[in-house]
Simulated scan of single mutants.
Amino acid sequence: MEECLPEMVPISANVKNWTVSELIANGRWEWRKLQGLVPDETLQKISGINSFCLHKQDDPVWDKVRNGFYTVKKGYMETKMKKFVVDGRAGGTFSLPNSIWGKVWKLKILPKITHFAWRCLVGAVPVKEALVRRRCCNTSVICPICNQEVETIEHTLFLCSRFQGVWFASALSWKIDCNRFQSFGLWFEKILIDDNVLNEFQLAYVAWIIWLVWKERNSVVFEAKQHDPIKVVQLAEKAVREFWKANDWMVDDDEPVTKEIGWKGWRPPDFGVLKINCDGSCSLEAAAIGLVCRDHAGGFMWGFGEVVKSNSAFLTEVLAVLKALVLSRI
């Protein structure tokens, strides 16, 4: 085993920080310095280096390709082959598997929405927390919509109290659990790979909502527009249906978004029957209830929301059910 190892030469402390340029003078090797610094076998290999190479200036090279020249295409492919390590909530990190990228690029949605989903996954969305962390600006990290929590990508798209109503009002009727929601990447990986309960149309619908929530956020922040969760839901369903019809992917206008065997979310009522979903939210400062009425195809009929007097989550939920019973008789 010892015969296979190269000869080791001890290096004194005063030469440990030498660079290659300090071993060259006037285009020639400083053999006096090299002797005793490296083994004789290595000296023979150094002597084989052409002297004209020593006169050339150093050039940066990229070690991922043979010719050393970096190109955007090669850089993209190298990045794509790696697992992304993305910032999660509360300072955590997680790794995205390579299998998720193929799923993202195959979503039947507009290319700009696909690109936005990719930006969300790699943490390239300019939310307040990301801008401050990267020292792009010196401002507050608090969400400009609710003015309560740090604005991360997860908060903006799901956890903000102003946007949770979008998911609840959607045909999926998702109620976001703020305590269990960890990160956008883990959530997206779960619905794309792990759960396998959403069909292609439902995945497109979810992606469109994500895109429109971000656009709604920007309209509120930069254009001072009034937030309207019902409008976001209606635009999402209209847009995804029109896009699918234009590509001959969908033939039935009455096809409900939630029509899928094994779907564990909102279930449509019988034909000719309306269904009311209600929910309540309570904090130390205030309490509010919300109701959404939909038909058998998942079509939005009407919505209702108001601030109520309540000091517990249970009482708030009861008030929401009571209001649903009252409005169902109108």
Rank of each mutant, 00 (worst) to 15 (best):
C4R: 10
C4V: 14
E7P: 09
P10F: 14
K16E: 15
K16P: 14
T19S: 12
T19Q: 14
T19I: 15
E22N: 13
L23T: 14
I24V: 15
I24S: 10
A25E: 12
W29P: 02
Q35V: 12
V38I: 11
T42S: 08
L43C: 11
K45M: 05
S47E: 10
S47K: 10
G48F: 11
I49C: 02
F52M: 06
Q57K: 03
Q57C: 13
Q57R: 01
D58R: 15
D63I: 00
V65N: 02
G68T: 01
T71W: 07
V72H: 03
K73N: 10
K73V: 11
E78S: 09
E78N: 08
K83G: 01
V86W: 03
G88D: 08
A90R: 06
S95A: 13
P97L: 12
P97T: 10
V104N: 03
W105Y: 05
K106M: 11
K108F: 05
F116R: 09
W118H: 04
W118D: 04
V125C: 05
V127C: 07
V127A: 04
L131T: 02
R133L: 08
R133I: 00
R134K: 05
N138S: 10
S140W: 01
C143A: 08
C146A: 06
Q148L: 01
V150N: 08
E151R: 03
I153T: 13
I153G: 08
E154K: 02
E154I: 01
T156I: 04
T156C: 13
C160G: 07
R162V: 15
R162F: 14
F163R: 00
Q164H: 03
V166A: 05
W167C: 00
F168K: 07
A171P: 07
L172S: 01
W174R: 02
D177E: 01
C178V: 12
N179E: 14
R180S: 08
R180E: 00
F181K: 07
S183K: 00
S183C: 03
G185F: 03
W187C: 01
K190Q: 13
L192Y: 00
D194Q: 10
D195I: 01
D195E: 11
N199I: 03
N199K: 00
F201K: 14
L203S: 01
I209G: 00
I209M: 06
I210Y: 01
W214K: 09
W214H: 09
V221K: 12
V221P: 06
K225R: 12
I230H: 08
V233F: 02
V233G: 04
A236D: 10
K238I: 10
R241T: 10
F243N: 14
K245T: 08
A246D: 15
W249Y: 13
D252P: 05
D252W: 11
E255P: 02
V257T: 14
E260Q: 13
G265M: 06
P268R: 12
P268N: 15
D270C: 06
D270Q: 13
F271K: 09
G272M: 04
K275I: 04
K275N: 02
D279H: 05
D279A: 14
G280K: 12
S281E: 07
L284C: 12
A288K: 10
A288L: 11
I289Q: 09
G290W: 11
L291C: 03
D295R: 05
D295S: 09
G298Q: 03
G299T: 12
W302N: 11
G303W: 01
E306T: 06
S310F: 02
T316M: 04
V318F: 07
L319D: 00
L322N: 12
A324E: 04
I330N: 10
I330L: 11
